[in-house]
Simulated assay, not measured.
Amino acid sequence: MKIEKKMSLSFDQPSALVLIDNQTSFNHPKFPSSSRSNPSYEANLTTLLAAFRSARQRLTPGRIHIIHIFHSSLETDSSFHPSAAPKPFDFATPAADGSELVMWKCVNSSFIGTSLESYLRKNGIRQVFFAGLTTDQCVSTTVRMAANLGVVDNFPDGRPVTVNSDGSHPPNVDIDHGRIVLVSDATATFAKGGFDAETVHGVSVASVEGEFAEVFSTQEIAKALV
């Protein structure tokens, strides 16, 4: 899907904030803070989550959804393995009243082994916002799959969009595309492969912008939610 133009934000349709892997496992020495991008990540994600929570209280029930995706590694020596007791960061802890959905994954994509796709479709979500860790891995993978799966797209008769065996398109396919948004300053990553963290982060954002998602800042989204 090619996104031709960045349009202004509105929340007149069901929307979801999906927060990915905001866990204390990233405090492990394997992930030195000195090699992480975006020093404003914590502050921005705190602002983003607060804005969605406030909007959920004000708007019609079912309009705003908040979903937390956490990672549970299959590797026993990982800081994400259950034996290491991975916990959410204090600033990204799910609401105590259970109103925010929590899902666990064991791979990069938040759509594999979870009910995220079916939840978004069942609740008629028309725009989904992604933030969390890390930009180049789980966040990027999830954003790309959201676009490929068409999780916020509406099809008149509910059938998937495919091409015919001869390469032609089925007739009368009228697709109403929803919005997939990456909150670029509410995500972060680490240096790797000889590249500094800000470069890895910047290239990762640029790689999905326009092709898989729109890119907005925390402040742009918070302002639109008021």
Score class of each variant (00 low, 15 high):
143 V>L: 13
95 A>H: 11
69 I>K: 00
87 K>R: 15
91 F>E: 06
139 V>G: 08
146 A>Y: 08
203 V>I: 11
78 S>Q: 10
70 F>P: 00
83 S>G: 13
151 V>L: 06
11 F>T: 04
172 N>L: 15
155 F>N: 05
190 F>P: 00
192 K>G: 00
223 K>T: 13
51 A>K: 02
73 S>H: 10
144 R>Q: 10
21 D>Q: 01
61 P>I: 07
64 I>H: 11
226 V>F: 04
31 F>P: 00
222 A>T: 10
116 L>H: 08
23 Q>P: 01
142 T>W: 10
48 L>M: 11
222 A>W: 00
176 D>V: 12
174 D>C: 07
151 V>K: 02
213 A>L: 11
118 S>H: 10
22 N>D: 08
27 N>Q: 13
130 F>K: 03
77 D>T: 14
83 S>R: 14
7 M>W: 02
156 P>K: 14
74 L>Q: 12
127 Q>T: 03
14 P>G: 06
167 G>F: 14
146 A>H: 10
50 A>T: 13
210 G>N: 12
139 V>P: 12
221 I>C: 02
85 A>E: 07
15 S>L: 06
191 A>S: 15
33 S>G: 14
170 P>G: 07
87 K>G: 07
156 P>A: 13
199 T>W: 11
72 S>T: 01
192 K>R: 13
132 G>D: 02
113 G>C: 12
178 G>H: 03
208 V>Y: 09
211 E>L: 11
72 S>W: 04
24 T>H: 06
31 F>Y: 14
223 K>G: 01
158 G>P: 13
106 C>S: 15
94 P>I: 00
58 R>A: 11
34 S>H: 07
133 L>N: 03
145 M>G: 01
41 Y>H: 14
37 S>H: 08
141 T>E: 05
150 G>S: 09
166 D>Y: 12
89 F>M: 04
159 R>Q: 15
3 I>C: 08
213 A>P: 03
124 G>C: 10
65 H>Q: 14
103 M>C: 05
222 A>Y: 00
151 V>M: 07
183 V>A: 01
7 M>C: 10
182 L>N: 08
106 C>E: 09
63 R>K: 12
160 P>N: 12
195 F>L: 10
4 E>L: 15
28 H>V: 05
171 P>M: 04
172 N>K: 12
